[in-house]
Every structure is written in structure tokens, then in C-alpha cells.
Design a binder for these strands. Structure first.
Lengths: 130, 130
DNA sequence: AATCTATCTTAGCTAGCGTTCAGATAAACT
DNA sequence: AGTTTATCTGAACGCTAGCTAAGATAGATT
């Protein structure tokens, strides 16, 4: 199997009327630049990594839907895992800047951040009209 | 350890001046309703599940950043996995409605969907101002 | 201070995800 | 038709993410 750059050369040969080494290099450089733009220390990645897991996703959903802070014991109702797993998941959400935590005595209140709200609401909107 | 509903009762007793069984039941019902709203066949979930994986995330990023369709051999430059893994990942993105696929001879062109665009752009915006 | 409470943390196990390999497919060219 | 090309598909395997269990923590209550 040909390597990716080799196939890109053939692709360009197909697309352009005629194509020289410089064209191939330029195209690869362009893609390289794209990669830098797209990935260089991407701060949004942790949020998506967190929401990829169903437990964390459901908890984030609950917090956004509630439109108010919820206590851990309330959040447990939304998922079917151990209390320990809920605690783990909530810590992950906070680490990903998808939730905030507030202490009040023995209770811990979690709330959705603007990041969580905008991501889930955008998803709902975008999925709605297709 | 007390069960979640038991703790919710104590939580309400803390929050409300005084609290009866009806209050606890109402609160739990409210949360139940929230759960239905939030999860009943949530169509946005597959998109987040797909973007949770780094390979798929990077490919989606590349497609959004490119603002044009890209060929598989071009997309391979963005990730460090086998050509087969790229193909698997792209299929997953299409299944999650994050990308579209177009055939042209032996080449396959993928492009970001509005869902992918809006999710990643929203994330960038929300992460930007915090 | 001793106990109870809600939640967190650490450690270890396991299921499942994401990878690779091998072979399949379909389009184009000879 | 046979070959080459780009990509896809299915199966199998290894590793890690996410789970549970047990104990730790810190605030409240007695």
C-alpha cells in the first residue's frame, strides 16, 4: 500500500490538470498548518473527552436541565452506578470545566458551567434541524 | 450508608424549614421528570460519544478547520494510527452525523456536517471566555 | 471527644473500546 | 479478464477507562 504522501501526490495529479513536486509539498504544508491550528494545545478537548462517557454525560445533562445546582444525592438518581462512581464522574466534570462545586456542610452542590450549557444546547439545536 | 432518597429527605429537611413525606416525593418526582426530559432517547449523545475518542476528535477537527472536503489520504496526516483505524474512525463520524462521505472513483471525500461545525465552534467560543 | 454523616480517594479488576492485521470490495487502467 | 488502486470490513487482541469496594476525610451532632 502506498504511503499517504504518495497517494496525495496521485490525488493532486487527478485534481489538477498537471501537478509537480512543488504542488504536493504545498498541499502537505497547508495540511500541516491546519493541524497546528486545529490541535496545538486544544483546550476544548478535555470537555469532549469527559462528555464521551455516558455516566458523565448524563450527569452533565441533568445539571444543565436542572438550571440550578444539585446535591450529589440528587444526582445519583440520574445514573445507575455506585455512589463512588458518581463522585468520580463529578470530579471529572469539574476538572473539564463542565461543572462547579460548592460545599455546604456535608453537602456538595454541583452546577453546570456556561461551557456545559452551551455545548449541550448547541447539540440539541443542531440535531434538531437536519 | 443511607440510600439516595433517604439523603434527599435529610437534604430537604435541611433546606426547608420543615419537610414532610410529600415534599420528598415531590422533589423526587421533579427530578424524575428532569431525567425524562434530559435522556429520553437523546439524539445528541452519539455525537459526544464519537468525539470522546482522540482519533475521531482530531479527524473531526481537521474537517471543520479545513472548511472543505478532504480525502482519506489527506486525513491520515492528522492522526498517528493505521490507515484501517482512520477508516473505522471516519465511519464512526458519519454514523454519528458528524461527517458526510462522497465517492469519486477510488477516492473518498469526507466533510464536516453542520453538527460538527457548530459543536466545535461553540466549544472554542465557550472555552475562550471563562 | 466520640460518633454519625455525606462525600471523596485510593487501589485493583474487568469489560469494552480502539487498535492492527488480513482479507474483501469496487473502481480504474492495461 | 487481470491487475492495481484506495478504501473498507471483520475478527482478534491488548490496554485503558470506568467500575466497585474499602477505607479516609471533614463537617455536624451528641
Amino acid at each position: 500500500m502506498a504511503t499517504a504522501p504518495e497517494r496525495i501526490r496521485r490525488l493532486l495529479a487527478d485534481q489538477l490538470a498537471d501537478c509537480c513536486d512543488a504542488d504536493v509539498e504545498r498541499r502537505i504544508d497547508d495540511l500541516q498548518d491546519l493541524a497546528v491550528d486545529a490541535f496545538d494545545d486544544d483546550p476544548a478537548r478535555p470537555a469532549f473527552a469527559a462528555l464521551g462517557n455516558e455516566t458523565r454525560y448524563r450527569l452533565a445533562r441533568a445539571l444543565v436541565a436542572a438550571e440550578e445546582e444539585l446535591c450529589v444525592c440528587e444526582l445519583e438518581l440520574f445514573v445507575d452506578v455506585s455512589e463512588s462512581a458518581v463522585s468520580h464522574a463529578l470530579s471529572d466534570l469539574v476538572a473539564a470545566d463542565l461543572a462547579t462545586r460548592r460545599k455546604d456542610g456535608n453537602w456538595r452542590y454541583y452546577a453546570a458551567t456556561p461551557l456545559a450549557e452551551s455545548l449541550l444546547e448547541t447539540a440539541d439545536r443542531a440535531v434538531g434541524d437536519e
